[in-house]
Write a protein that binds this DNA or RNA. Structure first.
Lengths: 128, 128
DNA sequence: TTCCTTGCAAATCGTTTGCATAATG
DNA sequence: CATTATGCAAACGATTTGCAAGGAA
């Protein structure tokens, strides 16, 4: 894959890096538009997909029907608040051992797992 | 919620119960159509959503952009093959303890987790 | 000058919904 | 009869794609 520089892509990366709340494509679009008023949603999607493909960012699917994106590609777990829907990083050790547990009665080959936790975030659990 | 009987719904449930490969709405539609040629996709979606809401079946989101459905509502983990995309039940103990692990450095309240494993299924790992 | 990237709009995909009619209790 | 369920088609939201024009190497 042959890449060329693009100010739009840089701006998307930059925005993603300064946010730790895993924005959606639309949120990226809204914000990058402050710098590039003419950028199109298509361009945002194209770049997010490209960046995810080359491993610069990661795509997070938490089952809310919308893809979230994260500039932090280091392995870590996510928490999703049932109330406000926010996606939060969790500070906990990696559970690579559960792959082996899962492999015990399995005929194929387990290479990894995706886990996310849900409940109420700090904000929403005090309010109620 | 007030329910009335419907042959279409019965047929959907029946089909789901005899399959353990977690079919998508479209697959359900294709198959139930053998019995009810005039059934509409809308009806299939309506019933799958209804059945999932009342807990008769469960909706599985594995990040492939399509919802899968499972007549087995008992808690269990799933495996998704990277090659063929099939969704397979795993026989392993429940890992409720990881909720507490995750809660340690977290300010909110963790109520549960969703985990799925990925890799190559028995079929696809022998072929390659 | 090559060919990657963009903006725009149309298209696609999975899913939902409004409406008039049919089936159920 | 009162209501829920259906079939159909149109509507939807998120994402992708074709194309002609713009920008980087």
């Amino acid at each position: 894959m042959n890449l060329k520089h693009s100010k739009q892509r840089d701006s998307i990366m930059e925005f993603l890096r300064e946010r730790k709340d895993h924005p959606t494509a639309d949120v990226v679009y809204m914000n990058v538009r402050k710098t590039f008023p003419n950028i199109s949603l298509g361009t945002v999607y194209r770049n997010l997909t490209l960046l995810a493909d080359i491993g610069e960012i990661s795509r997070i699917r938490v089952g809310d029907g919308v893809d979230h994106f994260d500039a932090d590609t280091s392995p870590h777990y996510h928490f999703i608040c049932k109330e406000c829907g926010s996606v939060i990083d969790l500070e906990m050790e990696d559970m690579t051992d559960i792959n082996e547990t899962a492999n015990k009665n399995f005929s194929g080959l387990i290479e990894g797992h995706i886990t996310y936790f849900y409940g109420k975030c700090g904000n929403c659990s005090t309010k109620s």
